[in-house]
Amino acid sequence: MSFSLDELSSLVDFSQSSLTIALLAIAFNPTAWNIVAQNEYRNKTITRIFGGNSRYGCYFLAVMIFSFGILRDSLYHRALEGQPIKAILPEPFATIVPVALFIIGQTFVVTSTWALGVTGTFLGDYFGILMDHRVEGFPFNVLRDPMYVGSTMCFAAGALWYERPAGLLITIYVYIVYVIALRFEGPFTDMIYTKRAEERAKGSKKEI
């Protein structure tokens, strides 16, 4: 155990404030957007700010999520700069693996956004902007949550590219944060669409 602790302390500098800030930013994003979105579904707070226009409200939230995502990534890279450097993979894998991870990860993120559109990507269903049907094409035919998986892969790519073992620890943390966020986001989104389906079914019975 003492060896493991000594080894860990030589690979990760926990005294760096940039590391703490990055971890807080990583946890803040999915947590905050889940809270804001669920409040929007129940109380229409953002929609009311935009004069009852739910689409404008969703676009506003999209800008906020995207902006804070860029800030989070910037803080992550700043945290890596303050961490010890140690070769993680031998060449040529030290170059090939992170590049492949980044390309695949970005492919998942970009194609997810393309398939879902702005409102589908940035929690439009919480604003009452629901999709007509479940997206089943790529990348959703490969992964259930390709955007979160792709983002995690990009964090790992950064850690390997800059040869910061601390980055791999942060990547594990990112994965855990996303798993927790999905436990709240997934069931709530399913509830929204289930409720829509029930309302449509009731409407069909009335027409008959």
Score class of each variant (00 low, 15 high):
D6G: 14
D6E: 11
E7Y: 13
L8S: 10
L8Y: 14
S10P: 00
L11W: 04
Q16K: 15
T20A: 09
A22G: 08
A25M: 11
A32D: 08
N34P: 01
I35R: 01
V36T: 10
A37K: 00
Q38E: 11
R42A: 14
T45Y: 08
T47M: 04
I49Y: 10
G51K: 15
G52A: 14
Y59W: 06
V63N: 07
V63W: 09
I65L: 01
G69L: 08
I70S: 09
L71H: 04
R72Y: 02
D73Y: 14
R78Q: 10
E81Q: 09
E81T: 04
P84T: 02
I85L: 04
K86H: 13
E91G: 03
E91T: 05
F93D: 05
A94V: 04
I96K: 02
L101T: 06
F102Y: 13
I104K: 02
G105W: 07
G105F: 09
Q106P: 01
V109N: 12
L116K: 00
L116P: 00
G117H: 12
G120Q: 07
G120Y: 07
T121K: 08
T121P: 03
L123M: 08
L130S: 02
D132E: 14
G137I: 10
P139L: 13
P139Q: 13
N141L: 04
L143W: 15
R144C: 03
P146W: 04
V149Q: 03
G150L: 02
T152E: 10
C154R: 08
F155H: 11
L160H: 00
L160Y: 02
Y173K: 07
I176P: 00
V177D: 07
A181P: 03
A181E: 12
G186N: 12
G186Q: 11
E199P: 06
R200S: 12
S204E: 15
I208P: 02
